[in-house]
Design a binder for these strands. Structure first.
Length: 490
RNA sequence: CGGGGUGUAGCGCAGUCCGGUUAGCGCACCUGCUUUGGGAGCAGGGGGUCGCCAGUUCGAAUCUGGCCACCCCGACCA
């Protein structure tokens, strides 16, 4: 296996190589679309499984809506079309035929669709069109539905996990009788995301509101969680939208309230995608490869045997089998790497590349002494641990690693978050020491766009916990009541 | 969609300028032996419509024309 490019040499190249070398994903034959490989998919499955549980604990159920959306649905909500029109894949025909000399297939011009179908870039329209029939009375509300699906956005430039033409995600779409309830739902879900990303991915996030300019197309309010990557760029890790009555009005979804008066339904939508994989990778990994937080690692412990002959291998395997039974009982996921086609050094490097949190090695010496060599991925340190309390040790160690990974990311973010009060300093920080910039802003889209044009930094969010504080806009000098968070973003 | 670049074995490349043996190298792969506590060594071996189509020529990976695909940088974006 080749060597990974160092982060300090070329961060972007490091990321691209890591994704491939850790066996997470690869480019497919289709432009902009990736193949998620089994190891990468097993991490996504963990995310799916945990999030799904959290959604259900907060009262949601899963459903499934069509991949295709009639073109006309898109014209219903003006802002929504505006936001997605430029990146839609369109189905125009439904049949192929072999060409004249039978050497290839071509689109059958006879088989043109009456109305083109759009491959969903998001499902608000098809779902709200459906909800019209589901909602008649206040008794039908709320609707708390989530969908796990793939969506397509025809991006100009793509990168594995961070931005692909097709990606996997979940999208929650809820319907409520009152504005307050919908707002509460949007707020609740952004906190569910924050909880998930911080406690499982081990990535600290800032919870905030988007500026009007950065809002989801069709939303009256967009909440988000923003994370900081190791190169000082921000990554939006999840969003939750308060859609007001925009889609209800566009699709004529009304209900009769207790006073027998018709009212439009209030909506939210919220989603996270396979982009979280990108966040996970970029937040923790190092020059040796992926670093996975134990709460999300498909394999928490890998065991590598070291032996010179079949007899030793058989002996050691017995000891490993005993341990595996104990690990299983303790609810720890493990893999015994008993391949005799690879040597130990190769396996060490490979499992490091794949980010397995804990590696055990056992050779004739350990067998003799009833010990295990325990190596942790996050710190790359090794120690010898007695067989007598190995399971307890691993249990504690996994929790330690989870905490340590989070702390490392938290400290990194703290060290790369700057309170800035002058324009000169703003420009210098963006150029020289990228990270989050906490600064005053006059609240206008004009200033926001000017700053973006000059520095490429955008307002990531207005943090929910931003304190009231009199100040002046870092660019325009006009008065401001609170600081917002700027950064260059993915 | 603008600018730049690249297509030669699974991957990474040399060869192309200046046409001429059987198209070569590294990694990966296969076989054997020795190895195995941090990415093994030696020996042998397999694998190619040189992106596609046409043209020039005795002869094209190499020259000419057309086409296609992909990558990188911008604008757009979860």
């Amino acid at each position: 296996m080749a060597k990974l490019t160092k982060r300090s040499e070329n961060y972007s190249q490091w990321y691209n190589e890591l994704v491939v070398m850790a066996d997470l994903a690869e480019q497919s034959a289709v432009r902009g679309c990736m193949v998620i490989k089994p190891y990468g998919y097993s991490i996504w499955e963990k995310m799916h499984e945990i999030l799904d549980r959290m959604f259900k604990e907060t009262g949601h159920t899963n459903a499934y809506f069509p991949l295709f959306i009639p073109k006309s649905f898109f014209s219903r909500e003006a802002d929504h079309v505006e936001g997605f029109a430029k990146e839609c894949a369109v189905v125009t025909h439904y049949r192929l035929r072999t060409n004249a000399d039978k050497t290839a297939v071509e689109v059958d011009p006879e088989a043109k669709l009456e109305e083109e179908l759009i491959v969903r870039p998001t499902s608000e329209t098809i779902i709200w069109n459906t909800y019209r029939n589901w909602v008649k009375s206040y008794r039908d509300l709320p609707i708390l539905v989530n969908q796990w699906a793939n969506v397509v956005r025809w991006e100009m430039r793509t990168r594995l996990f961070l931005r692909t033409a097709e990606f996997l995600w979940q999208e929650g779409h809820t319907a409520h009788a009152t504005k307050e309830e919908a707002m509460e739902e949007a707020d609740k879900m952004v906190h569910v995301y924050a909880d998930f990303v911080e406690n499982y991915l081990g990535v600290p996030v800032v919870i905030g509101r988007k500026t009007e300019n950065e809002r989801f197309a069709g939303a009256d309010e967009t909440f988000c969680i923003e994370a900081l990557m190791q190169d000082g760029k921000a990554l939006q890790a999840g969003t939750s939208h308060f859609l007001a009555q925009n889609f209800a009005k566009a699709f004529d979804v009304t209900f009769l309230n207790k006073e027998n008066k018709p009212e439009y339904v209030w909506a939210t939508s919220w989603g996270v995608s396979t982009r979280l994989m990108g966040a996970l990778i970029m937040a923790h990994s190092d020059d040796n490869g992926l670093v996975l937080p134990p709460h999300l690692a498909p394999i928490q412990v890998v065991i590598v045997p070291i032996y010179k002959n079949d007899e030793q291998f058989a002996m050691i395997s017995e000891r490993v089998k005993d341990l595996c039974a104990k690990l299983k009982a303790a609810g720890i996921s493990y893999k015994y790497d008993d391949r005799d086609t690879q040597r130990p050094g190769f396996k060490f490097a490979e499992w490091e590349m794949k980010g397995v949190p804990v590696r055990l090695a056992i050779g004739p010496n350990d067998y003799e002494n009833s010990t295990w060599e325990v190596a942790r991925r996050d710190t790359l340190t090794k120690e010898s641990v007695s067989d007598a309390n190995i399971v307890e040790h691993i249990k504690t160690l996994l929790e330690d690693i989870q905490k340590n990974i989070y702390k490392k990311a938290y400290d990194f973010r703290a060290a790369h978050t700057y309170k800035v009060d002058t324009w000169e300093e703003f420009k210098r920080v963006i150029e020289e020491t990228p990270g989050f910039i906490s600064a005053h802003w006059d609240g206008t889209t004009e200033t926001e766009e000017k700053i973006k044009e000059l520095t490429k930094a955008t307002i990531r969010c207005i943090p929910l916990d931003a304190e009231e504080e009199e100040g002046v806009c870092v660019y325009s000098g006009k008065p401001s009541k609170r600081r917002v968070l700027f950064a260059k973003a993915y």
